[in-house]
Write a protein that binds this DNA or RNA. Structure first.
Length: 555
RNA sequence: UGGGGCGUCGCCAAGCGGUAAGGCAACGGACUCUGACUCCGUCAUUCGGGUGUUCGAAUCACUUCGCCCCAGCCA
């Protein structure tokens, strides 16, 4: 036996233990997992954790992973979602072995259901949904057996075939597993395993009018595919006895798949339930499932978050069984960390304030370092004419203690250019500064290496008035702080500006680079550049926020 | 109330009877043509509480408290 990989979480530890105990010797010690989303919505960051766990096991053990569409509820599922799921996984860079569908197994599942009937493990029940609920008992009281529980195999088989043939209306009959109506586990009290639904399925059309339930289809799909480990979230713990029962009664040979549960991902300020995400889309609070404010994979992608940052985040967060809510700061940190390495630096001002150098004439080309965090990133030219826009925040009429940027009579360095002194502040009718008149010191030219008497504590970014371009800045607020908020607060929060738009100035380099590229705007944050072309052919430069820079301005 | 789980630093999380890893956050300090980054340092005598077993416990036993999940013909 080859050496086992070092386990990075409790699931891998279990697998290692099983491997060393020889559990999978009969199947060549092959580990097989699956990722089983239901194609009824878009994948979100919570799914990324599940994928990291599953693909992680696949990679560590050189096993296989099936991407399985868990499509057993025709009322909710569609190709739109399967396409989006495949696209999301591809973007994340995960590679699965096979794309399969639970609906591929409908025939086999049906056969197994007939076997259950012949083995006396299932029966057709005529009780209504309400009656089934009423006779299921409570947490403390046993359920009462259905009057149809002891139908003969022949009768059950005939009825089940008739259900399949479509002669009964929706809800009139179901196939139930015959287990134990007094089990303390409600899932074992004769759960429904097949229901009638005269609803066309997006893949099988109207071939079927009876559909298997999750508790029946999922374990059997796992068994059919030879899955060794079926990893799912904590809420399925109560289903595990049923999972095992279903496979056992179907008669699959060992080794049989084992279900292992882990805690799902929660992040502060991030909505992680399909129900609410769908509400945001349906009620028009966002532009779609892939809106950059959405925690969906495609939303994150559009936001400009690198997939590697998401994987790093999942690795950092780990896998355990304890309920947890991770601070969003942890995600942001992973995103910044990645972008710090990979994003070029650029200058852009969101709230422009004009700064005119009174003693500068002509124009010149200066060099701007592309990325000081990355060796060999090099420099690129920036044009400078002595008339620039700076960020309003980078000037203060009434500077707090330790203020390092520009104030009247003070000095500051224009990044990659010169140190300037503010001589005069021109204010508007409200007393707000609208233009600064400054003096520059030629010996302080960036990169000149000249030692000057003139010193500046701060360095600020700027955009040249002549060469700068108009740009639209989009910044985002969390859509919701907690999905458990009552609906009232929820609506209020949605009404606040989750997307703020500013018109500002950006240096030409930003307009000229390729779309989708991430930049760090000096002192501001990481932004993704996109160009939007209007129907009339005019295009606008948009810089949308990925994550803001950490700032210690107030220390 | 029955059953199934979980409780280790502000937030995640290692630990598996031999004397509390790591990450995020925070806080000092250095560096800096980004108040970013980087770098150095600080940050659990204690593992929900109690009681036992043991030379020795976060790890075992008992007990107690708290939180989560389950009564869909959803997954």
């Amino acid at each position: 036996m080859k050496q086992l990989p070092e386990a990075t979480n409790f699931i891998e530890q279990i697998i290692n233990d099983e491997l060393s105990a020889g559990k999978f010797e009969s199947t060549g010690n092959k580990i097989a997992v699956r990722f089983p989303p239901e194609p009824n919505g878009y994948l979100h960051i919570g799914h990324i954790k599940a994928m990291c766990i599953n693909f992680g096991v696949k990679d560590r053990y050189h096993g296989t992973l099936n991407l399985r569409m868990d499509d057993t509820n025709p009322a909710k599922e569609d190709y739109e979602y399967v396409d989006s799921i495949v696209e999301a996984i591809k973007w994340l860079g995960f590679e699965y072995d096979k794309l399969v569908f639970a609906s591929d197994y409908y025939d086999k599942l049906y056969e197994i259901a007939e076997k259950y009937i012949m083995d006396g493990n299932a029966y057709v029940c005529d009780l209504s949904a309400e009656q089934i609920t009423a006779t299921r008992g409570t947490l403390t009281e046993a359920g009462t057996p259905s009057p149809y529980r002891n139908r003969t195999k022949e009768e059950n088989l005939k009825l089940f075939r008739e259900m399949k043939a479509g002669i009964y209306p929706d809800g009139s009959k179901v196939l139930r597993a015959k287990i134990d109506m007094s089990s303390p586990n409600l899932n074992m009290r004769d759960p429904v395993i097949y229901r009638i639904a005269h609803v066309p399925h997006y893949r099988t059309g109207d071939k079927w009018c009876i559909y298997p339930m999750y508790d029946f289809a999922h374990p059997l799909s796992d068994a059919i595919e030879g899955i060794t480990h079926s990893l799912c979230s904590l809420e399925f713990e109560n289903h595990r006895p049923l999972y095992d029962w279903v496979i056992e009664k179907a008669g699959f040979p060992a080794p049989v798949p084992r279900q292992i549960e882990f805690a799902r991902l929660n992040i502060t300020n991030m909505l992680m339930s399909k129900r609410y995400l769908k509400k945001l889309v349906d009620e028009g609070f966002v532009r779609g499932w892939d809106d950059p404010r959405m925690p969906t994979v495609m939303g994150l992608k559009n936001r400009g978050v690198p997939p590697e940052a998401l994987k790093k985040f999942c690795a950092d967060v780990g896998v355990a069984k304890a309920y947890s809510i991770v601070n969003q700061a942890q995600l942001d940190s992973c995103i910044r960390d990645n972008l710090n390495e990979n994003a070029e630096r650029a200058m852009a001002v969101i709230n422009p304030l004009k700064l005119t150098i009174t003693n500068y004439e002509g124009e010149e080309e200066l060099q701007f370092e592309k990325n000081p965090a990355k060796d060999g990133a090099g420099e690129r030219p920036v044009r400078f004419t002595g008339s620039v826009y700076i960020e309003k925040d980078d000037f203060s009429l009434d500077p707090p203690p330790k203020y390092k940027r520009l104030q009247k009579g003070g000095f500051v360095r224009l990044k990659a250019a010169y140190i300037v002194r503010c001589d005069e502040v021109i204010t508007d009718e409200n007393g707000q500064p609208c233009e600064l008149k400054c003096t520059y010191f030629s010996e302080t030219r960036s990169g000149s290496g000249v030692q000057s008497e003139i010193k500046a504590k701060g360095v600020i970014q700027w955009v040249d008035c002549k060469y700068g371009r108009d740009a639209e800045f989009r910044q985002y607020e969390p859509l919701l702080t907690d999905e458990k908020y009552p609906d009232q607060d929820y609506a209020e929060r949605l009404n606040m500006n989750s997307e703020r738009i500013f018109m500002g100035k950006a240096e030409p380099a930003l307009a000229e680079c390729e779309d989708g590229k991430a930049f760090q705007l000096m002192r501001t944050g990481y932004y993704k550049k996109v160009t939007e072309t209007a129907p009339d052919g005019t295009s606008k430069l948009i810089l949308s926020e990925i994550v803001s820079l950490k700032d210690n301005f107030n220390k």
